[in-house]
């Protein structure tokens, strides 16, 4: 809740974000239409599903923090100022606290910057929606898991600041990979086989490609369970690594005094 409220004070910034997402939504939708006009069932999508992909992807950019930031910068800053040491001494789990906050932030960004552009997209184009409430619920679950995966990555990056003071380099590498391998630039289903293989091994597909595939599953016929499983596996991996790294950081603080 605190995360939600914290970000809801920036109203003008949010409207600006809605505008930007809408503009990009329009541009990318037309790009995909041109592509699918020539290749009508590319990657197993039809043209309407592709356009839907474009708009939902835009809606997800802010919640899954494709461009990084938030907990990464906050943690890194706290490490720099030494305040992180206080965090690590608290009885409440740092990871748990930050995760809760990021979920609040994600929820806020999803509602404020995701809903309106999607509605605009629905107005201007023919979007494909889930047929059943069940699928819609699974899609919502998948989006939540996408945010958690995103958090997992950023939490690890932020904590890395304890060992590598300037995490800009690593952050950039992660952000670039996220942009390319999440499906934000182009749906992964369009990727050539060898790139698709790489993308399937990385966690970034959990952030955009998978939630959208769950969203579209009623009409594309994709099996949802394996997709959710992939997200779950990455969540377990990333959060376990995060907890372990936190423990190591705690020990570092105790031994060296931060």
């Amino acid at each position: 809740m605190r995360g939600f409220r914290r970000y809801s004070t920036y109203r003008a910034a949010t409207l600006a974000g809605v505008f930007t997402n809408s503009v990009f939504g329009v541009i990318i939708a037309y790009t995909y239409i041109a592509l699918w006009d020539v290749r009508p069932s590319l990657g197993g999508y039809d043209i309407d599903q592709a356009v839907t992909f474009a708009w939902i992807a835009q809606a997800l950019i802010a919640p899954v923090a494709i461009f990084g930031g938030f907990v990464v910068d906050e943690l890194a800053e706290r490490v720099r100022t030494g305040a992180a040491a206080i965090d690590l001494h608290r009885p409440v789990s740092l990871l748990g606290l930050r995760l809760a906050e990021d979920l609040g932030r994600g929820a806020y960004h999803l509602i404020s910057r995701g809903v309106i552009p999607t509605l605009l997209g629905a107005l201007l184009f023919d979007l494909v929606w889930p047929d059943t409430l069940g699928t819609a619920a699974l899609a919502a679950l998948s989006i939540v898991m996408a945010i958690v995966v995103s958090f997992g990555l950023r939490y690890l990056l932020g904590l890395l600041a304890y060992w590598i003071i300037d995490i800009q380099g690593p952050q950039w590498i992660v952000v670039l990979s996220q942009i390319f391998f999440s499906g934000m630039m182009l749906p992964l289903v369009v990727f050539p086989a060898w790139l698709r293989t790489i993308a399937d091994l990385l966690p970034f597909r959990c952030m955009i490609q998978i939630p959208i595939d769950v969203f579209l599953s009623d009409s594309t016929g994709t099996a949802v369970a394996p997709l959710l499983a992939v997200q779950l596996v990455w969540i377990v991996i990333l959060l376990t690594a995060g907890a372990a790294l936190t423990q190591i950081a705690v020990r570092k603080v105790v031994v060296q005094g931060g």
């Binding site: 920036y10 109203r11 003008a12 910034a13 409207l15 600006a16 974000g17 505008f19 930007t20 503009v23 990009f24």
Partner: peptide
Amino acid sequence: DAAEVSNA
């Protein structure tokens, strides 16, 4: 606060 509009 609406710096992002420029990005569009």
